[in-house]
Nucleic acid binder design. Structure first.
Lengths: 146, 146
DNA sequence: CCTTGAAGCTATAGTTGCTAGAGACATTAG
DNA sequence: CTAATGTCTCTAGCAACTATAGCTTCAAGG
């Protein structure tokens, strides 16, 4: 049985984060020692590692909740998990595309900095004017979430 | 003079967001009509478009605050604005690198889905095991922020 | 002129995924 | 046995908005 600190170390998750996951029901309520401290089994460590890994891959806690409930019921079809993973992949691909466009624009901006005074600065100028933009930001557009 | 709704339309920013920007001091307090409604000049529209554009490029509101104060004082040197833009570019490049690694791993995961039951699902399995991971997630590692 | 509906106002609370602090109890090393 | 570390609960805070409630103001139609 592991204390919360050891568990956190082994899973690479901070202690308050573990308590937070318990609070929002992503982890079950932990067993307690005589002195009321949380104790964790190897299974709990696996579950937390799963969460950690999925978070690293950018899955939201909601998506992870779904994946966990699928893995808790092994009779369901893989298709559901696959769909969640595919959605995540699509998300990542779209962020990637946006970031590449942004990188290009930022590079252009930085290259054009003449080293002079702000009055002549391309960085400020480019940011002030959407029409100089490489990417299309025509206005009533869904918000970008980077 | 524009009402807040028109301003929002023209800049591509939602009305509550404009009020929020005013509240946190990113926009100056707007003039008011006789009936206490906010009125905006063309200059305000430009400032808001600047903010919008910088947000699209992933600048934080803090970075934008700095850029705005630079452009409000055009006698300063360009170097400061350039530094902010370069920092932003570095940020974007590092996110890009992480995202590309994630994309690779997600693709591997999704490809291996056999279409069977969860018990056999690679998605779940891969997520449960860091050691199958392409990227290095050795444990006491700074958090990823996608 | 009056009404109606859209748009505006303030203020507060919720969102996501944590992180940080206070103040008290538990456990462990020397 | 004591001191240091770890853990407990609870609350509040972060970014950057978004949503709700309950009100007032404005513009257009009848």
């Amino acid at each position: 049985m592991l204390t919360i600190g050891k568990l956190g170390q082994q899973a690479g998750v901070k202690v308050p984060t573990i308590r937070y996951y318990e609070q929002i029901g992503l982890l079950p309520e932990a067993e307690r020692s005589a002195g009321n401290q949380r104790l964790y089994s190897r299974k709990a460590l696996e579950r937390l590692a799963f969460i950690r890994h999925a978070r690293d891959l950018g899955f939201t806690l909601e998506a992870i909740r779904d994946l966990l409930s699928l893995s808790d019921n092994p009779d369901q079809f893989c298709a559901a998990a696959d769909a969640i993973a595919r959605a995540q992949l699509a998300e990542v691909e779209s962020r990637l595309a946006r970031l590449m466009a942004l990188k290009a624009e930022l590079e252009r901006m930085v290259l054009q900095c003449a080293g002079g005074r702000i009055a002549d600065c391309r960085v400020i100028e480019v940011l002030g004017d959407h029409s100089l933009c490489a990417t299309d930001h025509s206005h009533p557009e869904p918000e970008l979430s980077l």
